[in-house]
Design a protein around this nucleic acid. Structure first.
Lengths: 248, 248
DNA sequence: GTTACCCTTATGTATAGACTTTATATATGA
DNA sequence: TCATATATAAAGTCTATACATAAGGGTAAC
């Protein structure tokens, strides 16, 4: 098959491998939200036709995305975009409700503040926004058995996630809703220990100056930074746990 | 090829796929230390013969391990076990020296304590040891420009890592040496904010009761728990940063 | 001696085809 | 009606083969 051989060559000399192209294409569609969680993606055979390649090549790309946790694959059913992007099994600190309920306590949550305002300078830098941009600010408190458990202070960039504008966070907390509904490209966490400032000590009902574990998280999609959140946990009661194995 | 077909069938009905078996075998050899970092593993063609399968099947396994970061693969040279297991790019908090030097400061380190003693009850539980087992305890202080930067308190289980017994930690710090030389199966991190106790405040030269970020790490190989370490960083000066993408 | 060219080696990519496994859908017979 | 075949669909595994690519060595021409 000389024609096929030359076809292969011309494609290979495109410098980047075909299965990698396919992988990136699919990943892009997922993180951009074009293929939302639950969406059934084309069958291997169809994608093979689409890219003019063999099924094995498509299979290689999809298998990798499945291992990476972006896809769920089922025989006969097909391949589906996986539910919310969990923040890697290693450091799953998104799900405050689960955290509370796993410890056998009752979870509840209260929205303290929800307003639109102009960004501050530091925030504009942080989220790479114009100086006069408008953001939505949310503050809420997560309870464990009616004990304050975590104070969440968040700003959202409406430009990067317009669909959030219509959401009232009376039932679901912002972090829960966002984890389930907003796809992201990359996330950065910063973890720091601080002394509780005035607001935190009052809200969490702990003495001013006592110790807090603070996690700041910034997530990004292809339209820019979506949100920045600060989660403050009281004292040495809270532990972040992360498990690793060489391969995962 | 009917004989081949039936051979395939009989293998496939072994319930677990061949490439996965190969992957696990290689991984086991690496984490057990049988194939140490730098070791050249057999060529694809040889492993194919060894397992009585095609090169593609071996390739699938090795490619995955390479993506997972356990192997380095080079054309013409072959495939090598990758250098020290870094603690996943996401949360690389092992390398204190690098951390310091990346911030433009000079790194130095001082060994404060090195002794053998009987385990305490809590430690025996933690590392799953006999009540009367002996452990090696190490304490040291990492400096950033002659400022105390991190206080390390560590216990080592000689049964799980006998080679450590001969190492004097006068040049390399225990954490550096262990990161470079001790393969591990799994690691657990716990991150917590605490108020500095007496020892920590004196060692790190900070006021008693001021805020500390403490990381506790426990690593395990196939012989059991190797070591437990507590790293204390002073105040809100220290931040743990972790970056995520959906695939990595 | 250096350049140009070819050979070798080991991994990398891609293909076409065969068979397996899991699960649904549909028809068949008691 | 219900259980049981049977067909079908899609992913999973594996093979044999082919060519590409990277890196090194060797050799002959200049």
């Amino acid at each position: 098959m000389t024609t096929n051989a030359s076809k292969r060559q011309s494609k290979a000399s495109g410098r980047v491998s075909l299965h990698d192209t396919i992988l990136k294409d699919v990943q892009q569609k997922i993180v951009s939200g074009e293929w939302p969680p639950g969406h059934r993606i084309p069958f291997e055979t169809d994608m093979a036709k689409l890219y003019g390649c063999s099924r094995m090549t498509v299979n290689k790309a999809l298998t990798q995305l499945s291992l990476a946790g972006l896809l769920d694959r089922n025989k006969k059913w097909g391949t589906f975009v996986r539910a919310p992007h969990t923040i890697s099994a290693a450091l799953e600190i998104t799900n405050i409700r689960k955290e509370v309920e796993d410890s056998g306590k009752d979870y509840s949550y209260e929205l303290l503040l929800d307003r639109h305002r102009q960004v501050r300078k530091r925030e504009a830098q942080l989220l790479d926004l114009e100086e006069d941009a408008t953001i939505r600010q949310l503050r809420c408190l997560h309870y464990s058995d009616s004990q304050p458990f975590c104070f969440e202070d968040r700003i959202v960039n409406p430009l990067a996630a317009p669909e959030i504008e219509h959401v009232k966070f009376d039932a679901d907390s912002p972090s829960a809703w966002m984890a389930a509904n907003v796809p992201w490209n990359s996330a950065e966490h910063q973890i720091v220990a601080t002394a509780a400032d005035d607001r935190i000590s009052k809200t969490l009902e702990i003495p001013a100056g006592s110790v807090c574990l603070v996690i700041e998280r910034k997530t990004q999609n292809d339209k820019g930074y979506v949100t920045w959140a600060r989660l403050a946990y009281p004292g040495d009661k809270h532990r972040l746990i992360a498990n690793f194995t060489p391969t995962s």
